[in-house]
Design a protein around this nucleic acid. Structure first.
Lengths: 204, 204
DNA sequence: CCGATAATCTTAACGACGTAAAGATAGGAG
DNA sequence: CTCCTATCTTTACGTCGTTAAGATTATCGG
């Protein structure tokens, strides 16, 4: 009798349940992190019984994968909308990447299988999504880095932005510092390298 | 009747249950990741009933925190055992860091609250452990970086190693590449910075 | 318009989980 | 030896993901 949407008369057939479930899942994700993702709670919020979800998804993992898919699509949008890397500067893209993670911490962590129970991280579809993102990064880098170093540079850059995103999400940095300033400064270091007292270029 | 340790006669009072629980938990962590951590399974392996654990820990989260504590201690050991940063090179330390993560993927992810259900990530004790590690990193860096840049450099370095560790753990990099070589190459970039076409010596 | 068929949603139920409560057992102090 | 207390056990409750079986509605051929 009571639907989540007060306007609708609670029909037996919801009509757009799949989407409604995903939206509720996404909200849940941002409220309580990936660990809070739960079929029963999602269904509860949509005003539907838990097993109803099984007509649209094969299980909780499947919902998680669908959410991750949307996440990667949105991330790609954000990266393309970033001030183009015309001058070869990857700062804007990096800011966009970390910005996405900071705006959608729960979703971002889910996309990388962090904080979620289950064999989701090993799911082929998710691994493919991540690999696709990785390939995009590599082709982007291929324009501004010697071909022989693209692979290493890509891993370097992804490690940096991924790690930075997670640390920012977790608030694990100097308290009192302005996050945006911090992110910009760290990304700037990715081009300069760490300041050293000795000459760079020798063995690690 | 049947203990996990076939040699012991299954005494009513275990004698060293706390440690046994932690060891079982650690094994579980490496077998199935943080998501597989379960009081009932831990107790099962030790040959004890689940509620017995509550005499030594306040709950599952408490066990997780204790495991994380051990993890941070071991990580600190590994970092100090690394070929000393005498020449100011941080490569060995970085290799040691990533090496620890790769040797103990489940534990490492737990230490950063990744893959674990519950409000563990926000736990004060864990946050303190991470902050301590961060401070150690900063003091280490203060010897080889201008004071004004220590904070940024520390976040840069931690982001890089943390992100790299997680990506390596997840196997999310070019298949076929040798992990050790990859890690070394990425860490080397942390000193040089990303090669850019605008920098002197451009080859792009 | 009407009835069959298929899609969608419901309630009921199973096993596993974390955890609380209450009782049994054993080691140590007097 | 006796009592006390810490430790462990069995039992139980509520939640979870998921399956099975039945109810409801949309769709479509006649």
């Amino acid at each position: 009798m009571t639907t989540a949407e007060a306007g609708a008369p609670a029909r037996y057939h919801h009509g757009d349940l799949r989407n409604a479930l995903l939206e509720a899942g996404r909200a849940l994700l941002e409220e309580g992190g990936p660990a809070a993702l739960s079929i029963r709670e999602i269904a509860r919020r949509v005003g539907v019984s838990a097993p109803a979800a099984y007509h649209h998804f094969s299980g909780l993992d499947d919902i998680a994968v669908a959410l991750a898919e949307r996440g990667f699509a949105e991330l790609a949008e954000r990266l393309q909308a970033a001030p183009s890397n015309a001058k070869g500067q990857l700062g804007p893209a990096g800011m966009a990447y970390v910005g996405f993670a900071r705006d959608n911490p729960g979703l971002y962590r889910l996309m990388f299988g962090e904080g979620f129970r289950g064999a989701f991280a090993a799911d082929e579809r998710v691994r493919a999504l991540r690999s696709d993102a990785y390939e995009v990064l590599k082709t982007g880098l291929s324009k501004r880095v010697p071909a022989s170093e693209v692979s290493t540079a890509a891993l370097f850059l992804w490690s940096l932005t991924h790690g930075l995103s997670l640390l920012m999400i977790d608030g694990q940095f100097d308290p009192g510092a302005d996050p945006d300033t911090l992110v910009a400064a760290v990304l700037r270091l990715s081009g300069k390298g760490l300041p050293t007292s000795s000459e760079p270029g020798d063995r690690a």
